[in-house]
Nucleic acid binder design. Structure first.
Lengths: 203, 203
DNA sequence: TGCAGTTTTAACCAAATGGTTAAACTAATT
DNA sequence: AATTAGTTTAACCATTTGGTTAAAACTGCA
C-alpha cells in the first residue's frame, strides 16, 4: 500500500489546520512547522512566504463547495427539487469541513479584493447561479411560487445553510447542545431548511 | 457647547475601529495609538494591555443588540407581530454598526469560552428567548403555525438577519451591487425576511 | 566511489510588536 | 512659589515573528 506522505502534503495539512484555527493574522509559521513535524526553514523552502501558503489554503477552502453545486444545477430538475438538493449538499459539505465557514467569513471581510480577484480569475469554476435564476423564473411564470426576487431568495438560502456553522459556539451554548446534539441539529437541517424555504415561497 | 472628548473616549473610538477592522490578532497597538492621535505609552497608561482593551470593545459590540430585543419581547404581541418587530430591529441595529457582525463572528469562534463566560456573568442582560419560545408554543396550540421546533425557528431567524452582513463582500460582488444597492437590499430585508419566515411557518 | 541534485537542519537576522520606565508637562491646591 | 496628583511623552527593552543563509544529510546514478 502507498502510504507515503510527502513533506509538501504534511505542510499543507498543518497549514490548513493552523489557518482554519487562527486565521491568517493569528497563525504562526513556527506553529505550522511544528504541526508538520519539520523545521521552519523547510517551510519557506517549499512555500516561499506566509502569504503564498495562505493563498493555497484559502483557495482550497473557497472552492470546496463549488463542484457539487455545478453537478446539481446541470440537471433540469423541478425548482423545489433543486432547492432540496442544494440545501442538502451545502449543509453536508460545510458540515464535513466545519471550520471552513468561520475561516472564510473572516478572511473574506478582511480582504474582499482577494475574493473578487479569485472569482474573476476562475471564471471556469464559478457557481452557475444563472441556472438557478432561470429555474426560479420558470417557477414564477408557472405561478408555482411567490415573486420574492431571485437575489432575496438566493441570499436567504445561503444564509440558512451557512450561518449555523459560523454562530455555532453561541448556538450550542444558548440552546444547551453538546457536540452530538449540534451534529443532530445540523442533520435535521439538511431536510428541514429546504422545507422551510419551499413553504415560504410556494403558492 | 460641551465638545470635550476625553483621551479615554478617543482611545475607545480608535480601538473600536481598529479591532472591528482587523480583529484582535490583526489589530496593532501602535495603529490604535495613531488613530487616537496619541502616544503608545498613553494607551497602556489608560488600558493596561491589549487584552483588556479588547475585552471592552468586544463586550460593547456583543451587548449592542440585547436591550431592544428585551423591549420588544416585553410586550405580549401576537407571534407574527413579534417576528416582524424582532427582524426589523435586528437588521436595523446590525446595519447601523455593520462591521460588528463579521467581527463578532470571528472572535466568537476564536475564543468561544469568552462568550460563554460573558453570558453567564451577565445573566441580567441575557436575551429573553424563553418569552419567544412561549409565544411560539401558544401559536402551536392555537394551530396558527406548523410545528417546526423552536430551536430550528430561532436559528433560522437569526441566520436570515445576520448572515448578509457577514457575507457582504461576496454578496455584493456576485449580485453586482455597490454600497447603495446593498443598503437598499438590506432595507428591503427588514420587512421581506419577516414575511418570508411567516409564510414558511403559518398554516 | 564520487558526483549532482534535492531535502533538511541549525544558526542567524532585521523588523515589528506588546509593554515598561523615567522624566516632563499641566492644572488645580496650599 | 511649592506641592501634588493626574496626564503625556520619548526612549527603551525583551520577545516574537517572518524570513534568510550556508552547510550538512540524503538521494539516485554514473
Amino acid at each position: 500500500m502507498e502510504k507515503e506522505i510527502t513533506t509538501e502534503e504534511k505542510i499543507i495539512q498543518a497549514a490548513k489546520s493552523a489557518f482554519l484555527e487562527h486565521g491568517m493574522a493569528g497563525a504562526r509559521m513556527q506553529d505550522i512547522a511544528d504541526r508538520a513535524g519539520i523545521n521552519k526553514a523547510l517551510l519557506h523552502y517549499y512555500f516561499r512566504s506566509k502569504e503564498k501558503l495562505f493563498e493555497i489554503i484559502f483557495k482550497e477552502a473557497f472552492f470546496k463547495l463549488v463542484p457539487q453545486l455545478n453537478e446539481i444545477l446541470s440537471h433540469d430538475d423541478d425548482f423545489f427539487i433543486i432547492i432540496r438538493k442544494v440545501v442538502a449538499v451545502y449543509i453536508e459539505t460545510i458540515g464535513k469541513n466545519s471550520y471552513i465557514a468561520p475561516f472564510l467569513a473572516h478572511e473574506i471581510n478582511r480582504n474582499p479584493e482577494r475574493v473578487i480577484n479569485m472569482l474573476e480569475e476562475n471564471v471556469g469554476r464559478k457557481i452557475p447561479f444563472e441556472k438557478l435564476v432561470l429555474a426560479y423564473q420558470t417557477s414564477i411564470t408557472s405561478k408555482q411560487i411567490r415573486p420574492i426576487g431571485p437575489d432575496m431568495l438566493l441570499v436567504n438560502i445561503i444564509s440558512l445553510c451557512i450561518f449555523p456553522f459560523i454562530g455555532r459556539p453561541i448556538i450550542k451554548h444558548v440552546l444547551s447542545m453538546d457536540e452530538d446534539a449540534f451534529s443532530d441539529f445540523i442533520d435535521r437541517r439538511k431536510v428541514e431548511v429546504a422545507e422551510f424555504i419551499i413553504n415560504a415561497i410556494k403558492l
